Computed example of a mutant assay.
Amino acid sequence: MSEFVCFRRDICAQIISGKSTSDIEKYLLDNFHLSTTEVNAVIQSIQRSLITICNQKWAKALRKQERFESQYTNWLNGEFKVLLPSCSTSTSENSDLNTSEDRGKLTKPYEACSESTRKRKNMELLQEYGMGHVHYAYVQGLRSMGENDEASIVSIMRNTEKEEKKVILRNILESSDDVLSYTKGEALCIYIY
C-alpha cells in the first residue's frame, strides 16, 4: 500500500477557510496528483480525524490566524498521513461503491441520535459559532415557526442578570402549582356562554 503524506497546515488552511468537501477534493487532485479512489480515502480520513481537531484548535485560537499559527506551529508542521488503497483495477461493482454520495460515514438525523451524540454535536456547534450565534439562530428559528412569544421569552431570559433569572424561574414554577383546573362542566360553560 502506498501512503499520502502532507503537512497538516496544507489541509487545515482549506478547513479553516471554509472550503467545502468538493473544494478540498479539487485541491487534492490539483496539488497531489491522486486518483479519484485515493482522494476518496484521503477525504474520509480528513473527515474522521482532522476536521474536528482542526476546528477545536481554531476555536481555541479565537479564530485568529496569527494566534492559530503561533499556538499550534508544531502541530501544523506535523505530517498528515493516510494509507492509500492499492491500485488494483476496479470492476464496475467497485467503481459504483466509490461514488461521491457513498463516501464517508452516514449520519443520522439529529432526532435519531443518542443523548451523548447530541451533546457532542451541540458542543461542536458552540465551539464553531459561539453562544451568541447559536442563541440568535434559535430565536430566529422560533420566530420563523410563528412562536413569537417563546422567542421573546428566550431573548428576555438570555439577556437577564443571573439573580433575576432565578426569581423568574421560581415564579414560573410556583405559579404552575397554584393553577386550578376547571371541571368538565366549568370548561363547557366557558364555551357555551
Rank of each mutant, 00 (worst) to 15 (best):
T73W: 08
L169M: 14
Y129F: 12
E69M: 10
C54F: 04
Q71M: 10
T160D: 04
L106D: 12
G132H: 03
L188A: 13
T99I: 12
A187K: 06
D96K: 11
E93G: 06
E163F: 11
M157P: 01
D177A: 11
D177G: 07
Q56V: 06
S100M: 10
S116R: 09
V167G: 06
I16M: 04
Y138A: 03
V154Y: 08
I156D: 04
S155R: 02
F7Y: 09
V42W: 01
M145K: 15
L84W: 00
V167W: 11
N31E: 11
S86E: 05
G18T: 07
G185Q: 13
C113N: 07
D178F: 14
K19N: 14
F4H: 00
D102N: 13
A13W: 04
K166R: 15
Y193R: 09
L188H: 07
L83I: 08
I43P: 00
Q44K: 14
K165V: 15
R8I: 01
S2W: 04
S95M: 12
E164R: 11
T160L: 13
K108R: 11
S144Q: 15
C87P: 02
A59R: 01
R48Y: 14
G132D: 07
A187L: 10
K105C: 09
V39N: 02
Y110H: 07
Q65S: 12
G130Y: 00
T91M: 05
T117K: 09
R170N: 14
E111I: 14
L76Q: 03
R120I: 07
